[in-house]
Write a protein that binds this DNA or RNA. Structure first.
Length: 910
RNA sequence: GCGGGUGUGUUGAAAUUGGUAGACAAGCCAGACUUAGGAUCUGGUGCCUCGCGCGUAUGGGUUCGAGUCCCUUCACCCGCACCA
């Protein structure tokens, strides 16, 4: 039988589907292992060759773990709510549900061809009401909870109400609470709920007609679509993620994630420990205390002015009458700028004097209060003390507006720039004089607290997540408004289904749901916003544990068994979005006792991106003549992307090119050595660059096993790399050679003879290597080891079942279809995925001889080959007897055998 | 500016974690065979002045021994960025 991958692959894919080979069930007698991929958003373009990279890697791991005796949960689903489907709907009038279903079907078809071991019985789609019921449920739980700082966890809001009724809480006394109206009570509770409605400055994107979360905005543009984003005050639903800042930070410690990813999250959370200090200010006779935040109280003697954020609520209070005109002009100017303009002008210092003066609480000095956009309202208190000598931003501001600069560290030069380093000896600083800066920071903090001028304060950059979107294709909020008071739709009424509407575009500043008929609950209007994309993806890994449960997100039994994700594979682009929200969401459910693990993802691997390799042709300007890449510098040419399917090894198929586009039909060509050579570049894989490679094409030509093997062979999974099919023949050849260990045409070669020591050595070396490499997520080296082993076995003409049967098992995670076929040929009737990973016996893998390098004066060397069991003195005597040693050692006849932990590592002659 | 990472043949890369650098592939060169292919097989392939030579971005250091550890410089990639 020849290796006919087409029939083999479709046969086993059908077999796996029919037999539900990869179905996972709770089984307390076996250890579990949960391998998860970040589920895809099913876009209209389908999968390209880069998408499956992570899926292949995790599939290999899942299959390996099964062989190792684990009960593996390896599910897949679709993150199906989202903007592109809605945008498409706006353009074509097609309901997003229709396009989504179509795209999902195509994704499924493509995924199935690659031979993944997913348990499709557990598939979820975030846009399925049976699924988003639980997204809405979680929201209701968050609405019905508050964060109790005393217990440091979320608790039912009823506990807060009880506190308010009996003893009062925060700035609300029991008496005030009792006297409050329903609306006032609702407003008070809103300040504490985990999911709450509040006015805040939001990222408003006019182009998309919706607000966006911070992680959905980059460089002042929306991540989706690239439209400009501006800051706007709006009332929005928000999630109190900031309450979890410290736990999100400390929880990172125990996780097996890369340092860079953890650092991204730490950065995003942005913990900073400093001091809040109260400065009294006066303005037109009013006295206003202003609290500022600083991490450098030690520099308080160098303060020469104060600055307020333009959005600070203190600005009106601190604007002197004779400055009002200038201040208002400045505020207008700031307001008009989009976020992008504000960023672009980062180094452009702007500001205005308010007319107010503050008193430095330590020196009693009178200092002016300025207003500038370089101070952010959203961070700290929105007010700062400025120390131009030791902060570069304050320095730039002081220079621009001619404010004094007072150095307070001995010998520092602030004539050109500020001295920001935390080193040196303090001066001009009263009681801090002569101290080292590091000691002064602590001493100043203590002093300020002792004198009651301020207190230590920890700030976080992490902000609450804005949870409303003015869109159609998302989860509706289970909230209705009774006399303007938001009320939860009862849990028993969930899911609150997304209503049908005929036009998907937002109109008249109202979200699309405003157009829905009867969008009411018991006669009361329902919330018209929908939830953002991250809502549905925040707990999907929990739903996979028990996806058809209608009574709970996941049963205690299922959650208690599967617990959390052991291996999570996905792109690094979710570092500050999904991966923060999911951790938050999980911790919240953990607080309320719905899940048993505090952290959702134990180990996380970020697969790299596969870029496209584009090809170019060069057209002489103003002609229809194309010149080969090597000649293009002789003319003025235009570089044109050419579809990579028309190019092979950078050589253009001229006839195909002529047929590609009518305007090229009668093109002329200037060739090099009779060929047209194309230029190339590594770019993002996309339709517009004509460099997309569809995995289906690779499956057609080489088969899924080759695709899987090749994607892994390309290099470390974590690394980004361009797709380049040059090497694909190598892995394809490997598979065919592998096949020919078992079959020579129609002759079955496998015999029951006893395996020799060489064959056993090859096998066990490979077992050891594969085991070690897969655990380390290093698949390219495993495949290399496989190729070496195969070459050795071919050399040995090995055809022993004792070797080939375990070899088939070893191959199965990588090339499952071929492994199944050969497993079946070997006489098994079950799937190879039920086999056991062969046992590694180090003694069988060991080399008999070891080669020792011999060094002389650290330079020259030769080697001696000795049995592994040789003692250092035996090695030494062999080295001494060596003819070369004898020649060198006149006068310096010292042999040193270097032994490290009982192993000889080197032999040195001196 | 801050943080993280990377730098090895023509290319993708490997290196038992401090022990013969370039495994395994790709490409290229030469040859064999033929059903003339996008097939298969064999050999060669870091550099040069061919030596007791040189060689892992650069310069230094530790070590008997450094691609690997420490410091310098350079280049590139990623993330954050007026966060006080």
């Amino acid at each position: 039988m020849d290796y006919d991958f087409k029939s083999i692959e479709s046969k086993w894919q059908a077999y796996w589907a029919a037999n539900k080979t990869f179905r996972a069930e709770v089984d307390a007698s076996r250890p579990k292992f949960y391998v998860l991929d970040m589920f895809p958003y099913p876009s209209g373009a389908g999968l390209h060759v880069g998408h499956p990279l992570g899926y292949i890697a995790s599939d290999i791991f899942a299959r390996y773990k099964r062989l190792k005796g684990f009960n593996v949960l390896h599910p897949m689903g679709y993150d199906a709510f989202g903007l592109p489907a809605e945008q498409y709907a706006i353009q074509t009038g097609q309901h997003p549900e229709v396009t989504t279903r179509k795209n999902v079907a195509r994704y499924r078809q493509q995924l199935d061809r690659i031979g993944f071991s997913f348990d499709w019985d557990r598939e979820v789609r975030t846009c399925d009401p049976a699924y988003y019921k639980w997204t809405q449920w979680a929201f209701l739980k968050m609405f019905g909870s508050w964060y109790d700082p005393a217990l440091d966890k979320a608790r039912p809001i009823g506990e807060l109400v009880k506190k308010l009724e009996t003893e009062g809480y925060g700035d609300v006394s029991a008496k005030q609470w009792a006297e409050s109206s329903e609306k006032e009570k609702s407003d008070i509770l809103m300040r504490y709920r985990i999911a709450y409605q509040g006015e805040t400055s939001v990222n408003w994107c006019e182009g998309l007609g919706t607000v966006l979360a911070n992680d959905e905005v980059k460089d002042g543009l929306s991540v989706r679509g690239g439209y400009p984003v501006e800051q706007k005050k709006m009332t929005q639903w928000q999630l109190r993620v900031s309450a979890y800042a410290e736990r999100l930070l400390s929880g990172l410690e125990g996780l097996d994630w890369t340092d860079s990813l953890k650092d991204m999250q730490r950065n995003w959370i942005g913990k900073s420990q400093g001091t809040e200090v109260v400065f009294n200010t006066e303005c037109d006779g009013r006295t206003v205390p202003v609290t500022i935040f600083t991490t450098r109280v030690d520099t308080v003697f160098g303060v020469t002015f104060m600055v307020l954020a333009p959005e600070s609520e203190l600005v009106p209070l601190l604007t002197a009458d004779d400055r009002r005109k200038e201040v208002e002009e400045y505020l207008d100017e700031v307001k008009k700028k989009t976020e992008r303009e504000r960023m672009a002008q980062t180094r452009n210092v702007t500001g205005v004097f308010s007319g107010a003066y503050g008193i430095n609480p330590l020196t009693g000095e009178r200092i002016p209060v300025w207003i500038s956009e370089y101070v952010l309202s959203g961070y700290g208190t929105g007010a700062i003390m400025a120390v131009p000598a030791h902060d570069s931003r304050d320095y730039a501001f002081a220079k621009k507006f001619n404010l004094p600069i007072i150095p307070i560290i001995e010998g520092c030069d602030v004539s050109e720039q500020s001295f920001d380093a935390k080193e040196g000896k303090m001066c001009n600083s009263g009681f801090l004089d002569g101290m080292d800066v590091k000691d002064a920071i602590e001493a100043a903090k203590d002093y300020v607290e002792e004198k009651g001028l301020g207190r230590r304060k920890t700030n976080y950059r992490l902000r609450d997540a804005i949870f409303s979107r003015q869109r159609y294709w998302g989860e509706p909020f289970p909230i209705y408004y009774k006399d303007g008071i938001p009320m939860p739709v009862p849990e028993s009424e969930l899911p609150l289904k997304l209503p049908q509407i005929d036009e998907f575009k937002a109109q008249g500043g109202e979200p699309p749901l405003a157009r829905a008929k009867d969008w009411t609950y018991c006669g009361y209007p329902l919330e018209k916003n929908t939830m953002p994309g991250f809502a549905g993806s925040s707990a999907y890994y929990l739903r996979y544990m028990d996806p058809r449960n209608d009574e709970a997100l996941t049963s205690g039994q299922a959650n208690g068994y599967w617990r959390s994700v052991d291996l999570y594979v996905g792109g690094t682009e979710h570092a500050t979005g999904h991966l923060i929200y999911s951790r938050f969401w999980n911790k919240f459910l953990y607080d309320l006792g719905y899940v048993c693990e505090d952290e959702p993802f134990r180990k996380l691997v970020n697969q790299g991106m596969i870029q496209g390799r584009s090809n170019f042709v060069y057209r002489k300007v103003g002609t229809n003549t194309f010149v080969s890449a090597g000649l293009k510098d002789r003319y003025e040419t235009t570089e044109i992307h050419v579809d990579i399917s028309l190019v092979r090894n950078d050589r253009l198929d001229i006839e195909a090119f002529k047929a590609w586009r009518p305007e090229y039909a009668d093109a002329d060509f200037e060739l090099e050595n009779g060929e047209y050579v194309c230029g190339w570049a590594v770019e993002k894989m996309s339709k517009s660059m004509f460099n997309v490679v569809n995995p289906d094409d690779i499956c057609d030509r080489y088969g899924a096993d080759t695709l899987r093997l090749y994607e892994m062979f390309l290099g470390p999974v974590e690394q980004s790399k361009p797709w380049d099919t040059k090497g694909i023949d190598g892995v394809n050849r490997f598979l065919r050679k592998f096949w020919h260990l078992f079959w020579d045409r129609d002759t079955w070669l496998v015999t029951d003879g006893k395996a020799g020591p060489e064959e056993l050595k090859t096998l066990h070396k490979l077992i050891g290597k594969e085991q070690q490499d897969i655990e380390a997520f290093s698949y390219n080296t495993t495949i290399s080891a496989f190729m070496i082993a195969l070459n050795e076995l071919v050399e040995l003409k090995c055809n022993k079942r004792e070797i080939l049967e375990p070899l088939t098992v070893l191959l199965s995670p990588f090339a499952p279809h071929m492994a199944e076929e050969l497993w079946h040929n070997l006489g098994h009737t079950d799937s190879v995925s039920g086999a056991s990973f062969p046992e590694f016996i180090p003694a069988l893998a060991a080399e008999d001889n070891v080669t020792y390098p011999v060094q002389f004066n650290g330079k020259m060397r030769f080697t001696v080959e000795m049995p592994r069991s040789a003692s250092p003195s035996e090695v030494e005597s062999v080295v001494r007897a060596h003819p070369l040693t004898a020649k060198w050692t006149e006068g310096l006849n010292v042999v040193k055998v270097i032994v490290v932990s009982g192993r000889i590592v080197n032999v040195v002659v001196k």
